[in-house]
Design a protein around this nucleic acid. Structure first.
Lengths: 155, 155
DNA sequence: TAAGAATAGTTGTGCCTACAATCATTGTTA
DNA sequence: TAACAATGATTGTAGGCACAACTATTCTTA
């Protein structure tokens, strides 16, 4: 019975989530700044480092990142200037540009990964019981799936 | 034992959360746009409407919103221009400005609240079992508290 | 009470992002 | 194959936000 109001329990969950998710993001971001790049930059490098062919088309990358094409163009500009990412043309389709992570970028990423994992553990995972960790996964897999964006299913 | 890596279960939870939270925010935002204001505007109006004295100091409001002072100034500019919010001076301390919601603003808010609640229910609450709802609350109360930002404790 | 610190808010500036428009290339079809 | 649609990426522009600098006011204290 989908009421127009939230029950006390529902309100408690919604408010806790809504208020905390921004703080959590800010904390993770802050822990990463000593490494010289933002959480957004970090995510780009992670995805590029996991790309099976070592390179991704701009449109695929922007899709994975949930970023607009123009947003990705500018984000890559910065990473290219830092020497962390390389643009290259596709030989078979001259519309597409590939992005790939450079050895320098991989180094920078690897030096940040440890801290970031510790950060995630400290602020999120470490605060939860094993049961809650499973539940957190269940919850956001359900929500993401309902949104048409099932997580972790990206090829 | 705080490892430098995440277990499969931890990774599953983290990835699901990280990937989905942005999509959820976007969906809630999209459901609100027909009403003519953003989720940020909505939050301002909610907090102002709940203010016991009907008005809040800028600094208190920015604190509640997790917004910088300058960010709040510009956000209020928009809401004032729309006629939804009123600025007024404090008689006892001429540094402070009060913000209060106008009758027009209250109308606009009330017309949006129903849709927003339905939106929250559709995208988040409605996807979860009662146990998961409790768990969601528990989880983010723990995380928020660890971040020094216990949710729902704002006076 | 006068001087300096602290507080409240606004403005200047810059970064990040999205949307719309644009250019180039490829695909489709009449 | 010529015309039109679709796709991939970038650029112009504008909005939202943060940080730093600034003004105004109040608090503190010597």
């Amino acid at each position: 019975m989908a009421s127009k109001r939230l029950t006390a329990s529902e309100m408690r969950a919604w408010r806790a989530y809504a208020e905390t998710t921004g703080h959590l993001h800010a904390a993770l971001e802050a822990d990463l700044t000593p490494h010289g790049f933002s959480l957004g930059d970090y995510e780009v490098l992670v995805i590029l480092s996991e790309a099976t062919d070592g390179a991704l088309r701009m449109c695929d990358l922007s899709e994975k990142l949930g970023l607009s094409p123009s947003g990705l163009t500018r984000r890559l500009d910065g990473l290219v200037k830092l020497g962390y990412v390389l643009r290259s043309q596709c030989s078979s389709d001259r519309r597409v540009m590939f992005a790939s992570i450079t050895p320098t970028g991989l180094e920078a990423l690897e030096s940040a990964v440890t801290d970031h994992v510790l950060s995630v553990r400290r602020h999120l995972i470490g605060q939860l019981t094993p049961e809650q960790i499973v539940s957190l996964g269940d919850i956001f897999i359900s929500v993401g799936t309902a949104l048409g964006r099932p997580p972790g299913t990206a090829p």
